[in-house]
């Protein structure tokens, strides 16, 4: 770790200004991933702009029934928030399925979204990685890739995004609020993270210097049945092998609203649009769920060591959807 400067920002504007005036700056939220990567030499900031004390640490109800989560709300506080637990249980469950109690006390909402892949080739500066060093190659493709992507990967990168929280946000149609040189804007959570394509070094749609100020959970998903399920190598404190977040509303025997997203299958939380289209307006039967999920996963292109993920994701999605469907129709 090279020596670096440190600036504590008192406001969002101050943070963006500090970032702009310090070449090589990085924002410091909880630091759980950034400090980890700095120790590995993967991240080498010249200056840390500390945004962890910005006044963005509250969860507030918006007039139309939506919920805004400040970017510095800690993962543990978000998971425990009564409104989140009550209206968006999938988000609370996803958070609690990730990391450990003490890490969730540190990690922030914004930082969770911006965490990097745990691909071992990305983390090891002695190995090629197009995400870390564009053009150097992908060590994982010919290496060990049991944990890697089966959907949407590119010849340049097969990494997955490690967040549980982001999977729930994608399924919930959340919006990520950003502030930068061009002012404020918001991006759908499901589109905030990118596919690797030719530029795996870009994880997200965030622009240089932009800062996440918050996440808005829409009123449309509030109070709907929702659920998160994750499979992992040990019972706790492990990244997902595959996970699914789903929101489902069934009225009059047909699906009126559905949001499904997969975790650990792709470079971003994988919003299952095809499956959702197939389900909207359909009766929530086991056959319909199977058809929809298979339609989505037909796009999978597993590698030699990770074909299991397709079947695992299918199982998880069918299990979660079946449990969310009203009992009378879920056969």
């Amino acid at each position: 770790m090279k020596p670096f400067g440190y600036v504590r920002a008192g406001s969002v504007e101050e943070a963006a200004d500090a970032y702009a005036s310090h070449p090589g700056a990085r924002y410091l939220g909880g630091g759980t991933n950034l400090v980890d990567l700095m120790k590995l030499g993967v991240e080498q900031p010249a200056t840390l702009v500390d945004v962890s004390r910005l006044p963005l640490d509250s969860v507030e109800e918006l007039p139309a029934g939506a919920l805004r989560i400040g970017a510095t709300v800690r993962n543990s506080d978000l998971a425990a928030h009564p409104l989140v637990r009550d209206r968006y249980p999938v988000l609370s469950q996803a958070l609690l399925a990730g990391a450990s109690g003490q890490l969730r006390n540190i990690a922030t909402t914004g930082g969770n979204l911006l965490q990097r892949t745990r691909c071992p080739y990305f983390q090891d500066t002695s190995k090629p990685c197009n995400k870390r060093e564009p053009g150097s190659g992908c060590g994982a493709r010919d290496g060990v890739h049991r944990d890697h992507a089966v959907l949407g990967h590119s010849p340049h990168c097969i990494a997955t995004h490690p967040s549980d929280m982001a999977v729930a946000l994608a399924a919930l149609d959340a919006q990520v609020e950003l502030y930068g040189a061009d002012g404020e804007r918001s991006v759908p959570a499901a589109e905030f993270h990118r596919l690797p394509g030719d530029h795996p070094e870009c994880d997200t749609e965030i622009r240089p210097g932009e800062i996440i100020t918050g996440v808005v959970l829409p009123a449309t998903a509030a109070g709907l049945p929702s659920r998160y399920r994750k499979a992992r190598d040990r019972a706790s404190y492990a990244f997902a092998l595959a996970s699914v977040a789903a929101v489902l509303r069934v009225d009059d025997g047909v699906v009126q609203h559905v949001g499904v997203a997969f975790g650990a299958l792709a470079h971003r939380p994988w919003r299952a649009r095809r499956a959702e289209e197939a389900l909207l307006g359909a009766a929530p039967t086991a056959a319909a769920f199977e058809r929809a999920v298979d339609l989505e996963l037909a796009a999978a292109q597993p590698l030699s060591d990770n074909a299991y993920k397709v079947g695992l994701a299918r199982d998880l999605a069918l299990d979660v959807l079946t449990r969310l469907a009203p009992p009378t129709t879920s056969t």
Binding site: R118, P120, S236
Partner: peptide, 14 residues
């Protein structure tokens, strides 16, 4: 490949 304690899974309490 599993060189750290995130990737090499020592059992946890759970």
């Amino acid at each position: 490949t599993e060189s750290d304690l995130a990737a090499y899974h020592v059992p946890v309490h759970a």
